[in-house]
Nucleic acid binder design. Structure first.
Length: 194
DNA sequence: CGTAAGATGAAG
DNA sequence: TTCATCTTACGG
């Protein structure tokens, strides 16, 4: 099957809209080891006027990518060992992005198992730092355009049209935890726990 | 099942 | 000192 990248315009909407429209789409990474793909099943929006967002204090060396035009990657390093992958949304100058929290593995599952040193499929990509490890995403992917190779988002031709989207509060944060900026596909087994 | 703590480094 | 996290260890 051939994957066609989404167009740049897809990402120019606000983070809350993008967080929902990304659900059911496919994240593809072409790597030297092979092609990796997974369905996006859980996202969180981080806005500019949002105490939990890296952009809330303005553009810093770390959060700069969030202020670029929608459609690029914002990858940051945290807890001394983990990377998290965000998709920048909106117009240039607006500091917002969508955190990808969980995927459903589609292609390259054997590679993901090697990258993660795990054999259980349901423990490969069900968390923001797990999926970056499984996909081999790191600081080198910061600023990459997500509508071209090697890392891009595509339509899922087999997308379940009847999927139900749940909106609720974000997890794993202290401030801004009351804001309902988290979205996931109801009943999907790969949504992250807590 | 559940809770707790350690790993490890960059940002503020 | 905190942090948009994960894994392992241990008690029930």
């Amino acid at each position: 099957m051939e994957y066609i990248p989404l167009k740049k315009e897809f990402f120019k909407v606000g983070a809350l809209d993008l967080a929902q429209s990304l659900l059911g789409k496919i994240l593809v990474h072409t790597t030297p080891k092979g092609l990796l793909a997974g369905i996006i099943v859980e996202t969180e929006a981080y806005l500019q006027n949002d105490p939990a967002s890296h952009s809330s204090i303005g553009a810093t060396n770390r959060s700069k990518p969030m202020f670029e035009e929608g459609g690029i990657a914002y990858v940051y390093f945290t807890y001394g060992m983990h990377y998290c992958f965000n998709i920048v949304s909106g117009k240039k100058g607006t500091g917002e992005a969508v955190l990808i929290r969980a995927l459903e593995p589609l292609k390259g599952i054997d590679i993901m198992k090697l990258n993660r040193k795990q054999t259980n499929i349901s423990n490969l990509t069900n968390g923001p730092a797990k999926l970056t490890q499984a996909f081999g995403i790191n600081k080198n992917h910061n600023y990459l355009k997500l509508y071209t190779k090697p890392l891009y988002i595509t339509i899922n031709p087999k997308e379940d049209k009847s999927k139900e989207i749940i909106q609720t509060t974000r997890i794993g944060i202290k401030v801004g935890a009351d804001l309902p900026y988290r979205f996931y596909i109801k009943g999907n087994k790969f949504v992250s726990k807590l």
